[in-house]
Nucleic acid binder design. Structure first.
Lengths: 195, 195
DNA sequence: TTTCTTTGTTGATCTAGGTCATCGTTTTGC
DNA sequence: GCAAAACGATGACCTAGATCAACAAAGAAA
């Protein structure tokens, strides 16, 4: 169960974890399973845990003043899921995080974060993770203002085909910032062009 | 000139810089001035410098396939300006960065980054900066899919009134993901509501 | 099986915001 | 000082995508 996490850390820190370090990790990261549709976090709560998905799929979303849900993040195996703002700044969460499938995670309690960051490869891994994440959301922001719906969908298909297979269309649509009807029509148009 | 930088670092690292650390900083961060309209970075180049703005204003933007500019970042005194992806991953820049006013900066060469990160308060400052930045772009992404143009403008007014005063409307419009005409009308409507 | 929920499609219509064009006003460069 | 550029406002029109509605199909639940 922990192997995926170790491997992830070693990959992104570009270094090897010692046995003692691995022990610290197993003492601070705890397994948690969530049934499909169960909430990992609700708006208004404190996000006390950061989760690494070992198996399953989750989605993060906000609810606006009109009660409309807007998907902000979709995550599957080997991804992190956390309300960063709430977790790092210890403020009430503005997002919901929900298991979309039955999901197994390893979760890091916020109060253990500082201990964990003493390990250089962990610090490096978090550093890289933040960097990558930031670049990705910058890219997403840019796409949303400069590309039409169809191009955004095609980009997602290219970049994260696995995501498209794991979530239904109305969730993907919301992630792309369009309605399910528009995504349905966009897919038809694209299919027409590539016979 | 360096005082602003020192102060910024001490503020966000929540610690005090020693004299020797300050010396390292003055040896690695170099002053650079840019005339209005001069480029700090062009698409395709390597972003070899991260800039801290001491005085002035800059904008970062991309140009899409149709030649339309999309403002991705606006920065004034005490802000950083850098193409993160290019700087950290050493890949060709996808953005332009241009001085909007005559600007004084302190710039950190990419090859000095690793030296600088040895100083704990610097590492901490970068950590915080990345964290904040990430949260901000997440917020911006959320706003753009969930709020109408008028609300986005009002939010910007509340959050960064200084930005609105320093840049012309067509730049602000692009930053908000709308056209200058729409911003003009939106402002009229808002002015009508608050007589 | 039967019922209920979730998912996806398609049509009709609407609208926020984009596009195009024009025209003052202000700034800037020389 | 003057021409040229940059800036901002406003009108007329257009369109990508939203909204509303109806319906089919496929799971999931019972």
């Amino acid at each position: 169960m922990y192997d995926r996490l170790f491997h992830y850390i070693e990959q992104y820190s570009n270094s090897t974890l010692s046995e003692s370090e691995k022990e610290v990790l197993t003492n601070t990261w705890k397994p948690q399973t969530l049934k499909k549709k169960a909430f990992f976090l609700r708006e208004g709560e404190l996000c006390n845990f950061a989760g690494f998905i070992v198996k399953g799929a989750m989605r993060q979303y906000t609810v606006d003043d009109n009660g409309i849900e807007h998907v902000s993040e979709l995550a599957i195996e080997n991804w992190w899921i956390v309300d960063r703002k709430s977790y790092f700044e210890r403020t009430p969460a503005t997002t919901y995080i929900e298991a979309w499938e039955n999901t197994e995670m390893l979760v890091l309690k916020r109060s253990n974060l500082d201990i964990i960051l003493e390990i250089p490869s962990i610090k490096e891994m978090f550093w890289q993770m933040n960097q990558r994440n930031q670049i990705a959301s910058q890219q997403r922001l840019n796409d949303i203002v400069s590309l039409p719906a169809s191009k955004r969908y095609e980009n997602l298909q290219k970049k994260y085909p696995a995501i498209i297979e794991r979530f239904p269309q109305h969730i993907i649509a919301s992630y792309l910032g369009i309605t399910k009807e528009t995504l349905s029509r966009v897919r038809n148009r694209i299919a027409g062009k590539n016979p």
